[in-house]
Amino acid sequence: MFGSYPVFLREMMLFRRRFLRLGYFFSAMFAPLLYLLAFGLGLGHRISIAGGSYLDFLLPGLIAMSSMNNSYTWIATSLTVGRLHFRTFQIFIQSPVSPFAIVLGEVLAGMVRGLFASSMILLVGFFLGSGLYFIPLFIPALLLNCFLFASLGVVSGLKAKSHEDTATFSNFFILPMAFFGGTFFPVEEMPRWLQFVIRLLPLAHTNKLMRAKCMGSDCLFSLAVLVIFAVIFFVISIHLVRTYSE
């Protein structure tokens, strides 16, 4: 447990170093802002979903998507490059810290990155005049979403045989999930068979929770799904670190 702090601290030092280069910051925030402006402003006036404005619908979706993307990508890339190219990951393996501590440190770092991106979008949404009001499950759903996808980032970062592997996984799994998981339109608009598939994806449940106004049993089910995914990915990560061998 204690050993997770230096692992986390190192990622934060690296994050800070990149953040100081402003170009990096803008390129990282570019995609979600583009979606927000293009869809939010372009479609926003014509469409209304569930009685609210489209911007109000879109904003939680973009927050879920960005928290997923940033938590996942940061950790998956950091581990793939650190393990295969710079070989800095090997320092953790050769240090007296437990696999649990290594994974926890990385996951917490990924969460910070995801929460940072989320808060940026929230800020922009606020200036665009979104009437987003906080609902009870917004924060736990966001935290779980970051935790879950940072853990998935660890799995992918440890399994990838090259940097391209991470990108491939991202294109075939993360990106479709962002589009079909209820980010831009309600899952209910899709054909029934596809809805069933979509409900197997964690991001769909995050989206649902972030927009839910009540705490019914349906929401508790979605929450349970996220917790189960988070636990599975976290446990797989620990297993991969424990059995790490070159």
Partner: peptide
């Protein structure tokens, strides 16, 4: 791991961090 020190063939320092930061992270791990 508590009693060994390793200097690998490839220089696996964090090049984007300072010398002090590299040592600090390593020392905290230990």
């Amino acid at each position: 791991k508590n009693i060994i020190g390793v200097a690998p063939q490839e220089i696996n320092l964090d090049k984007e961090l300072t010398a002090e930061q590299n040592l600090r992270v390593y020392g905290m791990l230990h």
